[in-house]
């Protein structure tokens, strides 16, 4: 079934790439419709490839949208509707993966990566500084003077550069 389903789904996807929600599906109350739309964008169309049910033309997605709207109309909160779908299709149906032990690596990953990257930069400078110090230690006064000279130098050099480019 999978292969066929994939083909059917691919066909369905390609068949009508327009936005999915049909006028007949919409709720009369614009506030509720807005909420239904928000929920629809958080739920994955389970027979599609990375599409929200709100943007999918698959039949099953349309039926899922219908159920979302029914439940919202009946007074369910957005979370309750999402929870219902999760109880039927698992985490797979959630486009925003929930934070739980299984996804700690996913949610913590970016922060860890950023810390590692910045840590690596720090280590780099630290190693450099060690070598720097070995080369030529300067007194505070000398350093300040060197700074001043260098800054002037930079400006002058920058000006030279421009003159050079202009010719």
């Amino acid at each position: 079934m999978r292969l066929t389903a994939a083909l059917v789904v691919a066909g369905a996807l390609l068949a009508a790439p327009a936005a999915a929600v049909q006028p007949s599906e919409k709720l009369d109350d614009p506030g509720l419709e807005q909420r239904a739309q928000e929920v629809g964008e958080k739920l994955r169309c389970v027979v599609c490839q990375n599409q929200a049910i709100a943007n999918s033309n698959a039949d099953l997605a349309a039926d899922m949208r219908k159920i979302v709207r029914e439940r919202i109309k009946a007074g369910a909160t957005n979370e309750e509707v999402i929870q219902y779908m999760q109880s039927r299709y698992g985490d797979y149906v959630l486009l925003n993966p929930p934070v739980k032990p299984k996804t700690y690596a996913l949610w913590g990953g970016p922060a860890v990566l950023a810390l590692i990257a910045l840590g690596a930069v720090l280590v780099y400078y630290r190693q450099r500084r060690t070598r720097d110090a070995e080369d030529a230690p300067l007194s505070a006064e000398e350093a300040a003077r060197a700074d001043r000279l260098l800054a002037e130098d930079d400006d002058a050099a920058a000006d030279d550069d421009r003159r050079g480019e202009a010719t």
Binding site: M1, L60, D63, M64, K66, R88
Partner: peptide, 30 residues
């Protein structure tokens, strides 16, 4: 309109459930 299919977490056809005597779902084959 997929009401029961969605309640059963169906994604396509055919799918087959084995239901125990107690009315509990014990297995699904996709």
């Amino acid at each position: 309109d997929s009401r029961v299919a969605i309640d059963l977490g169906v994604t396509g056809a055919p799918e087959t459930f084995i239901v125990g005597p107690d009315g509990r779902i014990r297995y699904k084959h996709t």
